[in-house]
Design a protein around this nucleic acid. Sequence first.
DNA 1: CCTTCCTGTTTATGCTGTACACATAGTCGT
DNA 2: ACGACTATGTGTACAGCATAAACAGGAAGG
Lengths: 278, 278
Amino acid sequence: MTPDPDRGVELLWRQEEGREPRPGLSVARIVRAAIELADAEGLEGLSMRKVADRLGFTTMSLYRHVPGRDQLVELMRDEVMGERPPDADRPSGWRAGLAAVARQALELRMRHPWLAEVRGTRHIPGPNAVAQYDRMLATLTGTALRPSEVIAVVGLIGRLVDAEALLIVETRREEQRSGVSEQEWWGSRDALYEQLNHYPTITRLWETGGWDHPEDSFEFGLRRLLDGIEVLIRERDENRDETCPECGNPLDPATSGRPRVYCSRACQQRAYRKRQKS
Amino acid sequence: MTPDPDRGVELLWRQEEGREPRPGLSVARIVRAAIELADAEGLEGLSMRKVADRLGFTTMSLYRHVPGRDQLVELMRDEVMGERPPDADRPSGWRAGLAAVARQALELRMRHPWLAEVRGTRHIPGPNAVAQYDRMLATLTGTALRPSEVIAVVGLIGRLVDAEALLIVETRREEQRSGVSEQEWWGSRDALYEQLNHYPTITRLWETGGWDHPEDSFEFGLRRLLDGIEVLIRERDENRDETCPECGNPLDPATSGRPRVYCSRACQQRAYRKRQKS
DNA sequence: CCTTCCTGTTTATGCTGTACACATAGTCGT
DNA sequence: ACGACTATGTGTACAGCATAAACAGGAAGG
């Protein structure tokens, strides 16, 4: 029933070992075909049957290489995360850096719309996902944020990107599926607008043109979020002295008055060992 | 193929007309049974068969009252949005107000986990959804935000709530489905951690205890977002004079120097009419 | 009384993921 | 060289899903 997670780790972190590709099926070939299919038809349109057909094999043959559909999606996920951007532009400063990785992540989801649709918890990260995660976390080193806050910020940005990407992707697909633009569609809902008239705030915002030139949802959200993060970073910067210089955790205020330098004996020892080395 | 949207409007905004409930099926009964089912088994576990079984009718009987599964979900959505909180606590100030509605929305998604899982675009809002939306928008009246910004902020908060709720809900369900807690599960991924050692930032954050006491994801995100919104509101407050007093849109800077009061003739007339009335 | 509509049923179609038994070919140990 | 074992692909089968289409009975209205 529940698939073996360790099998997942094995598959995701498998070494290709550069052996010449043998004929027949292989994990890599299956994943590639599945990505093509999902790019074209969305995650919902991805079925084991269609993948197999595309490769010229029977459905069940796939199960010799991949445990099941869910695991296949995990493999696809990590595969596309390996598509690196030119990498030339590594902006300096946490804010520019974070904004850059967020925009890159959004672009990736525009190239592979199904990526935003993947759901579920306990995703085992593959090498490419981890590298990406490490890069995101690295944008915040040098700030006075505590470790747990760095992690929370990166998670938050990730969730924003996913939410906005999903919005865009679903709208886009629905538009091309039905042939009706979003504007046209909502514009035809006369029966609905008749009801909306009775709601004061909506009516006022409507009359003052709030829906005439909407904000760019992603850029607006990103800016607000970065502003909010900046507030926290500034706050931490001001009391930088009150955090442990080794690990960034806050110092216990109970020790104030005494010469307090590190948050714990472990950190003190770590710092001592570092000093020894250099 | 594409369901008629106007039929959706009709269903969502139907008047019950207080007639005594006749025996047999009805939209309300179907929706109630479906909500119970989805509360217990999640959105994926919601099927027309199971709903019909629960009511003691055949599967196809449902289609006499509800166009299809998707529309049923829309009806369920609006139904639960009508569950109003005690309503006693209407905090003053945009920040407390926005935080309150965000937390209420999260709580609703804790009561009805499937609500966070609903996907898709072009959701026709029913009366309860619209009332909720109007309430959210209203928390920001009085600020100097432009109309389009008010809408963007409310959308952003909504997306944050959905993302965080989905995170919680999926984790919770997976934990009770598998009987393994999140901590236990990740703790057993030794094969994975061996790989993670090679990534510098992850390793450093790990060693400094970043994952030992994680932040509360929702509260952390909400605070950052509200801080970011506050930055924008302050900015708009400072140049309040440069926006149209009637609709809040920015004034055309080309008209500066001349006596510029409103952004357009329409707004000027609107304000004039208002002065006449009072 | 006959017709028409409303409501629920029956039957059937075409998808989906995947469990299981089988076939064939290649490899390894003796 | 030969039997056993393993890797790989196939065929069949099942349970579940949404829903289309034809049909049946009863209630209501002309």
